[in-house]
Write a protein that binds this DNA or RNA. Structure first.
Length: 584
RNA sequence: GGGCGCGUAGCUCAGUCGGACAGAGCGUCGGACUUCUAAUCCGAUGGUCGCGGGUUCGAAUCCCGUCGCGCUCGCCA
């Protein structure tokens, strides 16, 4: 309802300014501070004071008088407070909010008929997913979910690097070194198993000199040439490594869960000739230069100082070259493309966008969004060097601590619903994984995060369990109410306390929060909303009992409010990829 | 050194397309369970919004400068 209310307010202000012969380019519609009872306000009087020749409060009066809300359904009243014109919601606003909240998909926006491909994670298939990378699937999956809630037709893609130098090194190492020379794997799974060869290979290359180094490099170059030439046998050799490691990584990612509709291998753009086609078209462009035996793009016309090499002197393509073909494929098949990347890829992303324009693409449909790396107190994490915390270890530890919490609370539990072993297991997983996700997704992606165990696994702070608990409380009330024979109503006229009205106002805002998160690709606003909503609900919970309400009508309406609250909190959590427990 | 990002309470963070006295949680201190689940609630405490200028009726928010931290500047990805 908030979105409809806002639109009514904007139209009303614009019409009022028109009637007064004043400019309408900036309506100044904004949300007032919390202690102001209005739901929206306009600060337009400040700006018009000069032109009108009167003090802002007087102008505000004029505007308020000129505002006509007769046709408004959700604007109930207008007044002024100093220089501000304040807009209050109508009874219909509350009534329709409660009614809309009955739907279990509440918060979902109308279909946009737009297909959006969200590419995220796309980590090189070189080893287990570590926490430094884990921000990508958590943030990326939330972006995809939020876009879905906003009415888009979303596909999630993982772009698999199976054609670059790193996998060539990996393949060579896998075929060259003996298992007996390697340390024990940390887990019995392909990614943990094979990463040992990758680390060993890199170690070898760093220290090797002379003929030995040259021989190794020759073998690696041979693999890269084979890939470039479309040699089947080479693809098969590489795939042995890539598919196994990727399979292991998927197992980790699915625990979050971060699942994908499609794994797009970059080698396909070499094999189908698209990469070669891109190379030819770039060579023909006016920005192409041939320097030091390699083909490059001079991107100074796009404000980029560094040239982009798109064809090596040995005629092999680079990651970005193949990614150009990949993006043209996306443009052909989807209305919009969103890519979630680490901040270390910013320059490459700018070069990609410029090159796509040179190739004649409209890049307005491409949005590349970035997140800062998660570092350890002692520095960065690296698969190659083997430094960092594995995502599996973080999730295991989080679940373990969550289970401890559940077991600790069993004794002091008021509710007599007898949690069995399966319930404890379920809650430990929901809370443990939810806490990790919330910790990551609730922060602005541009801000750096230093990983610290105790902070990431703090269940007391502004965290997933706090929000999840509200959902469990809603489920508990609904269960008790059903047993007591109470049927929910949508009669808001008996919901007149501050706590009830505040809760309705928060429920009403939820779709607008989804809209904002999708527009800005910032799921953390949903996390902030969920936390604030939980606070509002907990106040309601304390002050407004459903089972012990003064009369049946109030009990029924409050039960309706609890249902709408449950849908709101469940879907806010779902948009973040966090499970909503029915009991805790 | 150039480019990009970040800097808000002791700590972790919201707020940043200019607007009403800068908000939470944690911590500290003090309260609330015979009540629909206390993983909860209520109160107190705590801030030169890195620093210095500028624009404006109004700046945490925009501009310039400066300091600190991160990323980046490969024929790696």
């Amino acid at each position: 309802m908030f979105r409809a209310f806002r639109s009514e307010v904007e139209n009303a202000v614009e019409a009022a300014l028109d009637a007064l012969d004043l400019p309408t380019d900036d309506l100044g519609v904004e949300e007032p501070p919390e202690d102001v009872p209005a739901t929206l306000a306009s600060s337009v009087a400040f700006r018009l004071a000069g032109a009108v020749g009167a003090a802002p409060p007087a102008v505000a009066e004029d505007v308020a008088d000129a505002v006509d809300i007769d046709d408004c359904e959700y604007v109930g009243r207008v007044d002024t407070q100093g220089p501000y014109v304040n807009f209050y919601v109508s009874d219909a606003y509350y009534a329709d909010t409660l009614d809309a909240g009955r739907a279990d998909d509440y918060g979902t926006l109308p279909p946009t008929d737009t297909s959006v491909v969200v590419e995220h994670t796309s980590a090189n298939p070189t080893g287990p997913v570590h926490v430094g990378r884990a921000r990508n699937p958590i943030f990326g999956d939330a972006v995809a979910r939020v876009l879905e809630y906003a009415g888009n037709d979303v596909e999630r893609h993982y772009y698999v690097n199976d054609a670059g130098r790193q996998v060539a090194v990996f393949t060579w190492a896998y075929e060259t070194f003996e298992e007996s020379d390697l340390p024990e794997p940390e887990r019995d799974r392909a990614d943990y198993d094979l990463v040992r060869y990758y680390r060993k290979g890199n170690e070898f290359l760093e220290s090797a000199e002379g003929d030995v180094a040259e021989a190794a490099e020759a073998e690696i170059a041979d693999i890269m040439q084979g890939l470039e030439a479309g040699d089947e046998e080479t693809y098969e050799r590489v795939a042995v490594v890539v598919d196994q490691v990727l399979g292991g990584m998927r197992t980790s990612l699915e625990r979050l869960p971060a699942e994908f509709d499609r794994f797009v291998k970059e080698s396909q753009f070499i094999r189908n000739g698209d990469a070669a086609d891109v190379v030819q078209r770039l060579k023909d462009s006016e920005h192409a230069v041939y320097e030091e035996e390699a083909w490059q793009l001079d991107l100074s016309a796009f404000g980029l100082e560094k040239n982009l090499v798109f064809l090596r002197s040995d005629d092999t393509t680079l990651y970005t070259t193949r990614d150009l073909a990949h993006h043209e494929w996306k443009f052909e098949n989807y209305d919009e493309a969103v890519t979630v990347l680490g901040e270390d890829h910013k320059l490459q992303a700018e070069q990609l966008e410029a090159a796509l324009e040179i190739l004649g693409n409209d890049t307005d449909t491409l949005r590349q969004t970035f997140y800062s790396w998660v570092n350890l107190p002692e520095g960065g994490m690296s698969t190659r060097k083997g430094t960092g915390v594995d995502l599996d270890d973080l999730l295991d530890e989080s679940i373990r601590r969550a289970r401890e919490e559940v077991e600790d609370r069993l004794g002091s539990r008021v509710r007599n619903d007898e949690l069995d072993e399966d319930d404890i297991d379920r809650i430990a997983h929901q809370v443990g994984i939810g806490a990790v996700r919330y910790d990551i997704v609730s922060k602005q992606p541009t801000k750096g995060i230093t990983f610290e165990w105790e902070r990431a696994l703090d269940f007391e702070a502004q965290s997933a369990p706090y929000v999840q608990y509200v959902h469990a409380r809603c489920c508990g009330i609904e269960g008790e109410a059903a047993a007591a024979g109470i049927d929910a109503s949508t009669d808001v006229s008996v919901l007149d306390t501050d706590a009830e009205r505040d809760l309705l106002r928060d429920i009403a805002r939820f779709p607008a929060v989804i809209e904002e998160a999708a527009e800005d690709l910032e799921p953390h606003v949903v996390a902030t909303f969920a936390r604030e909503f939980a606070e509002t609900f907990n106040t309601f919970y304390r002050e407004c009992s459903v089972l012990n309400a003064a009369d049946e009508d109030v009990a029924a309406a409050r039960l309706g409010l609890v249902q709408a609250s449950r849908h709101t909190v469940a879907n806010a959590l779902d948009a973040l990829g966090i499970e909503a427990p029915e009991s805790m």
